[in-house]
């Protein structure tokens, strides 16, 4: 490699060792001389090889295909083998921490067991139906090409690390496992679509996603896990696996816009929970009262769009596409 400009970068690493101080975490700062083409991984390897061999981290391919080296840089999960130091350093400093939402084994090496348990929970293998052909199953190339997008997932854990739902609800299956589930549901050769969708309707499944797009933002392979979860939601609704609040909410929302062009929050809640769902509605009463007392008076009769008929037309045209 042509040697170019050298620069000293201050790398602060959140470390943790069960054999030191009962595993309490501490931050250690290293000053590393780097070249301008360095990735964060290059710098970490330099620390490990030349400065401090006690630093634990996982890395293998250096080519963004094995998924070993995901960790948080300046608070956001990244695959450090493809993260250029020059892009993330601020005033010649970076902060490196282990992935979130996972227990730490040592320094930057986290325990992926919860990750793999959730992966296993979605039956992550083909379940073909019917007679097995002598040759290959026939399948349209477009379907296979579409699946390459999901198959690009290298199980690095970045999405799971930064998922905002996993921070507050640890039985959520999470973006990686759900994207994997999509891979099978969208494969024309898999015969268990309905069964899989039914399993995903349960607690911890697709309806727990809060659509915060963290997984989309941090995925180093453009797998777009949230998009996959949304596709699973619409497939569920299409297949009438829709007796949960999430699906009801989506359907209610759609119906309200179809009829009025604009949303009415009160009707939305009533339609989601159900007009006669006294218990659930009663739970919401204090919130409604609080709002009223604050002086917020949302109109009961909603505004509507001036040209709501045109909107309805568009719905009729596209709603079954």
């Amino acid at each position: 490699m042509v040697q170019t400009a050298k620069q000293t970068i201050q790398i602060e690493i959140k470390r943790q060792d069960p054999e030191i101080n009962n595993g309490e975490s501490y931050n250690q700062v290293y000053n590393v001389e780097t070249e301008d083409w360095f990735t964060v991984l290059d710098a970490l390897i330099k620390i490990r090889e030349e400065i401090d061999g006690t630093l634990s981290l996982r890395c293998a391919c250096r080519a963004s295909i094995c998924g070993s080296c995901a960790m948080r840089v300046n608070g956001q999960a990244k695959l450090v083998c493809k993260t250029k130091l020059s892009v993330v350093e601020k005033n010649n400093k970076i902060l490196v921490e282990p992935l979130g939402n996972m227990p730490v084994i040592s320094d930057l090496a986290t325990d992926f067991k919860p990750f793999w348990d959730k992966f296993n929970a979605v039956d992550p293998y083909m379940k073909p139906e019917g007679e097995v052909p002598d040759g290959e199953y026939l399948a349209p190339n477009d379907d296979m090409v579409h699946l390459v997008g999901v198959m690009n997932c290298i199980m690095c854990g970045a999405c799971v690390s930064d998922c905002t739902v996993l921070e507050v609800k640890d039985n959520f299956l999470g973006p990686a496992a759900l994207a994997k589930s999509y891979r099978f549901i969208a494969d024309p050769r898999d015969g268990s679509q309905i069964e899989r969708l039914q399993n995903l309707e349960k607690d911890g499944g697709i309806w727990d996603c809060t659509r915060c797009m963290q997984c989309v933002e941090v995925c180093p392979k453009d797998v777009d896990p949230m998009e996959r979860i949304m596709s699973l939601r619409s497939k569920s609704i299409e297949n009438k696996i829709d007796k949960n609040y999430g699906a009801r909410h989506a359907k209610a929302f759609t119906d309200l816009i179809k009829s009025n062009g604009i949303l009415n929050e009160i009707l939305l809640i009533l339609k989601t929970k159900g007009l006669f769902n006294i218990i659930e509605l009663a739970k919401l009463l204090p919130i409604a009262i609080g709002a009223q007392l604050a002086g917020k008076r949302p109109p009961f009769l909603s505004h509507s769009s001036k040209n709501k008929n045109q909107i309805k037309k568009i719905f009729k045209k596209l709603e079954n596409k």
Binding site: Y125, M126, E136, Y137, A139, P140, N141, M144, V148, F184
Partner: peptide, 9 residues
């Protein structure tokens, strides 16, 4: 392929 590899078509 039967195991599920998404070979190009």
């Amino acid at each position: 392929e039967h195991m599920g590899v998404i070979f190009s078509r």
